[in-house]
Structure formats: C-alpha cells, structure tokens
Design a protein around this nucleic acid. Sequence first.
DNA 1: CACAATTGAATTGTGCACAACTCAATAGGC
DNA 2: GCCTATTGAGTTGTGCACAATTCAATTGTG
Lengths: 162, 162
Amino acid sequence: MTSVPSASPDLSAIPDAELLRLDHQVCFSLHAASRAFGGYYRRALKDLGLTYSQYLVMLVLWEQGPQPVKAIGGRLHLDSGTLSPLLKRLESAGLVRRERSREDERSVVIELTSEGAGLRERALSVPRGVLAATGLSLEEVLGLQEVLGRLTGALGEVVDGD
Amino acid sequence: MTSVPSASPDLSAIPDAELLRLDHQVCFSLHAASRAFGGYYRRALKDLGLTYSQYLVMLVLWEQGPQPVKAIGGRLHLDSGTLSPLLKRLESAGLVRRERSREDERSVVIELTSEGAGLRERALSVPRGVLAATGLSLEEVLGLQEVLGRLTGALGEVVDGD
DNA sequence: CACAATTGAATTGTGCACAACTCAATAGGC
DNA sequence: GCCTATTGAGTTGTGCACAATTCAATTGTG
C-alpha cells in the first residue's frame, strides 16, 4: 500500500489542496454530464410527454412487463418516495394502471395501458439520437458504461457496508 | 458518413429495439452513478453541514474568492433559480455573505465568512476519501473526466445550437 | 435626456431524490 | 390462535434542477 504500481502516478504524492480543485473532482464532471443528459432528454421526450425519469420507468415496463413498484425500484435504484408520485403522474397521463396484487395485498402491480405500450414505437428512435448527440464512438460508450457500472457498485458498497 | 471506421462496430446495424434496452442506455448508468455519488457525499459532508451542491458552490468560492451569483452559475452551469435559495441557506448557516455590488447594483456578490473560509480545512480530506471509495485508478479517473467533459460539451452544443 | 432592449437576481411552479415516518398486510415464533 | 417483526406503499418535509416570469439596474440609440 505504501508503494504504487510504477505505471500509475502516485496519488498520495498529490497534495490535498490540489485534489480539492473543482476541475479535479469526478463528482463535478459526472454531475454536469448527468444534467446535460437531462437537458437533452427534456427536449427529446417532450413530444412523448415524458420526463427523463418517467422514461426510465417506461423502459423497465416495456422491457419486463407488469411488475410491482418494488421491482421497478430495484431495477432503477429508486425508492417509493420517488416512485409513488411519479407513477401516479404516469397513471394520470393514461400510460399505466396501478392495481393491488391479489397474492400480496401490500404490493401494487404496475401495468402498461395499451396507450403506454403503444408509446414504445415512438420511443424507438430516441436512443440513436442520444448516441449521435453524445459525439462518442460505440467503444467509448461501452467503456464509459463499464467504468460507471463499477463506480456505482463501489460507491454502493461503501454506503451500504458502512 | 454511410461507411463507418473499420475498427468500430457498425452502430447502424444494431436494431432500434436493442438500443432501447435499459442496460444499453448511457443515460441510465450515468444517472445511477451520479446518484451513487450523491449518496456518498450525503454521508461524507454530513459533518460539514453541507449538501452535495452546496459543497460544489463552496469549492468555487474557496478556489476563486468572492464573486457574483452569475459567475458561480457559469462555473457550475446552474441558474439563479437553483442558486438563489441555495445561497440563502449557506447564508443562514453563516458560511457566506450576500452583498449587492456597488459597481453594478443588479449583481449580488457572494463572499465567504471566516467560518466559511475555515470550513475548507475540514473539507481537504474529502476528495481523497471519494477517490478511494470509487475503487478507480488515477488513470481511469482522468480518462473518465475527459470523456465526461466531451460528453457534456457535445450535449450542450446540441441543446444550445438547436 | 428619453426610451427601448438587455442583463442579473429573485420568485413561482413542476418534478425528481431521498430520509423519516405511518399504516396495513404478511410471516414467524410461541 | 396470538403477538411481534418485517415488508411494501404511501406521505411528509427538505433540497436540487430548471422553465417561465417579474423587476430593478444598466446599456445602447437616437
């Protein structure tokens, strides 16, 4: 631990003050990129009447079919405090139905309406537009996703396991 | 434009339905990673009494000194609708002062109090902890920041220039 | 100088994210 | 069966993000 691989710059040799600089903080570039995506999707999804987060929920439903709130939350790492009002808005928009499960009355199953299912057709063209807008190559996208996945996993472990 | 570089898989050969899968969407991994950072910082900054976004504002002030709301917003890509209430909370916490500029009465200059400036000492150890929690090497972090920077720039251009 | 256009903050309204809590349904131990 | 613990949604409260609007200060132009 006191010696570092020779190929890597020695992180411990960098002073605290340098690491504190805004430009050097991963959180900032990630935060900015995430919000830049938000801005793009706000426009791209306007026609569909969806927000960024509602789109993510619809992706799960299109892909996996009817399922309880809990399962959607597990897939997207969102809790009921976020999903309950969001799903009510999707219900008001006529895109999903919310029904208590018969097997377990605590659970609420979310199901697409025919309108919600039909919206998928119009969403098919969105991802390609996004990829084009990023200006990244497919390799870069795949590499980015791999690194981000590890990042999320590592941060999740630190948070949960502490 | 109709032919792709031979080293890159042909993006246009991938069907729409495949691109629509949640796992293949960059926005999702980015969104998840950004929120994972939020969770980490929530804990790391609890002692300092700062939120994630407040920390970013403090970074700017620690680094650049007193400056108008507009300049902070430019640095972080945030508008007055976000910054005004945030800065009022920082003022209530005794970390900053808000004063109308004498040169331009429209502008409000944000300045650190001595307490706010003193908080920097306690924040110095935060970035190293974050880097450790990510589990990434320094090269990976630098590569990530480079890609994210290009991403943000490209998405910003699409949004602004359209 | 007068007046229109622009600029910088602030406000309002909508929606997301999450902690903390409530409440009902279920599961387990006795 | 009874009682406790757990689980799944929902609610409440705080804070961030952003569009749209308001308003005062400033700038530009005639």
